[in-house]
Computed example of a mutant assay.
Amino acid sequence: MLTRKQIELLEFIQKRMARDGISPSFDEMKVALDLRSKSGIHRLVTALEERGFIRRLPHRARALEIVRLPETLMQAGRDAEDSQFTPQLIEGSRSDPQPPPRGAMPVRVDAVELPVMGRIAAGVPIEAISEVSHHIAVPGSMLTSRENHYALEVKGDSMINAGINDGDVVVIREQDSAQTGDIVVALVEGHEATLKYYRRKGAMIALEAANPAYETRILPEDKVKVQGRLVGLIRSY
């Protein structure tokens, strides 16, 4: 039997993976469960793993796989319109794929070709790039639809604590609005493009890195244009 906090964490991970295509960071889990430190999250994740509800994939940042759900969450899912639960393997394909654990439901493997629109800065913003450099195949399970998505190659390490490394490819859903806490592609003052956490502070917008070496940039909202929200990540090795 799971504790209330373990169920809350499992439900939060499931919803964020369905929404963003990547599992939440430990910091995001800590905030969502209103815990004071990440050590509590580590204990909860370990307990869920030991009980066979999740699996941590080795050598990958923010790589969790949901193996199964408790009956309480399965029933809630059956009652919702989007009831079907499908565990998602986060990040890129493996050269030595392992068989899923016993009882795991199948993972979607259909691929979609997306245009790679150059590089995006996860560091100091770089000049905006809007030309297609090449195309890349991404799992269809990352996308909410087959349209209005594109990919960018990450340059820099300012989002490293969010599991986004230099050289990774991020999958972006094209949209012009965001909620506080989203990771977005932001166009700054019409010519600089950057990948950062989006946080609204009144009439100002904070573009926050996931690396303490970088300062948060706070700009008037008319200087920041959201060009898309992160929905998936493909790891580069």
Results as ranks from 00 to 15, higher is better:
residue 65 E to T: 07
residue 143 L to G: 05
residue 150 Y to P: 03
residue 207 L to P: 02
residue 191 H to Q: 13
residue 185 V to D: 01
residue 128 A to H: 09
residue 209 A to Y: 02
residue 157 D to R: 00
residue 82 D to A: 11
residue 60 R to Y: 00
residue 55 R to T: 09
residue 104 A to D: 11
residue 228 G to A: 06
residue 205 I to F: 04
residue 228 G to M: 00
residue 30 K to F: 03
residue 116 V to Q: 06
residue 217 R to N: 07
residue 196 K to P: 01
residue 82 D to K: 11
residue 135 H to P: 03
residue 164 I to Y: 06
residue 38 K to W: 04
residue 47 A to C: 06
residue 174 E to K: 13
residue 44 L to C: 04
residue 117 M to T: 13
residue 235 R to A: 09
residue 56 R to I: 03
residue 23 S to F: 05
residue 205 I to K: 02
residue 96 D to F: 15
residue 170 V to Y: 00
residue 202 G to A: 10
residue 130 S to H: 15
residue 90 I to Y: 08
residue 160 I to D: 08
residue 134 H to S: 14
residue 185 V to G: 08
residue 194 T to R: 07
residue 41 I to Q: 00
residue 119 R to M: 12
residue 203 A to S: 15
residue 124 V to P: 01
residue 178 A to C: 08
residue 167 G to M: 06
residue 97 P to W: 07
residue 115 P to A: 10
residue 118 G to T: 09
residue 10 L to I: 04
residue 115 P to F: 00
residue 176 D to L: 06
residue 42 H to D: 11
residue 122 A to P: 04
residue 170 V to W: 01
residue 136 I to G: 06
residue 27 D to P: 00
residue 49 E to W: 00
residue 144 T to C: 05
residue 71 E to L: 12
residue 38 K to R: 15
residue 26 F to H: 11
residue 154 V to P: 01
residue 195 L to D: 02
residue 72 T to F: 09
residue 41 I to A: 00
residue 227 Q to A: 07
residue 97 P to K: 06
residue 89 L to H: 09
residue 233 L to W: 03
residue 84 Q to E: 12
residue 219 L to I: 11
residue 48 L to F: 05
residue 120 I to A: 02
residue 106 P to W: 02
residue 22 I to T: 10
residue 181 G to K: 04
residue 236 S to T: 14
residue 136 I to E: 13
residue 175 Q to F: 04
residue 149 H to N: 10
residue 217 R to G: 01
residue 1 M to R: 10
residue 228 G to K: 00
residue 82 D to P: 02
residue 50 E to Y: 08
residue 82 D to N: 14
residue 20 D to G: 03
residue 93 S to C: 08
residue 61 A to H: 10
residue 156 G to I: 00
residue 124 V to A: 13
residue 78 R to T: 09
residue 50 E to C: 03
residue 212 P to F: 10
residue 41 I to K: 01
residue 11 E to F: 04
residue 225 K to S: 09
residue 37 S to R: 14
residue 214 Y to N: 05
residue 34 D to K: 12
residue 199 R to V: 02
residue 83 S to K: 12
residue 190 G to E: 06
residue 174 E to V: 11
residue 25 S to G: 15
residue 203 A to N: 15
residue 149 H to W: 02
residue 153 E to H: 05
residue 22 I to L: 13
residue 218 I to D: 00
residue 221 E to V: 09
residue 131 E to P: 01
residue 176 D to R: 10
residue 83 S to M: 08
residue 50 E to I: 03
residue 157 D to A: 06
residue 171 V to I: 15
residue 98 Q to S: 13
residue 200 R to S: 11
residue 167 G to K: 03
residue 134 H to C: 12
residue 70 P to N: 07
residue 180 T to H: 10
residue 165 N to P: 04
residue 194 T to D: 04
residue 144 T to M: 11
residue 192 E to G: 09
residue 31 V to S: 10
residue 179 Q to S: 14
residue 224 V to F: 03
residue 219 L to M: 14
residue 200 R to D: 06
residue 210 A to D: 12
residue 196 K to Y: 05
residue 17 M to Y: 04
residue 149 H to F: 11
residue 215 E to T: 13
residue 179 Q to Y: 12
residue 108 R to A: 13
residue 49 E to P: 00
residue 145 S to E: 12
residue 7 I to E: 15
residue 89 L to S: 08
residue 23 S to C: 12
residue 9 L to S: 04
residue 226 V to Y: 07
residue 41 I to S: 00
residue 63 A to T: 03
residue 187 L to E: 07
residue 166 D to L: 03
residue 19 R to W: 03
residue 93 S to D: 14
residue 46 T to S: 15
residue 37 S to C: 02
residue 62 R to E: 14
residue 24 P to W: 02
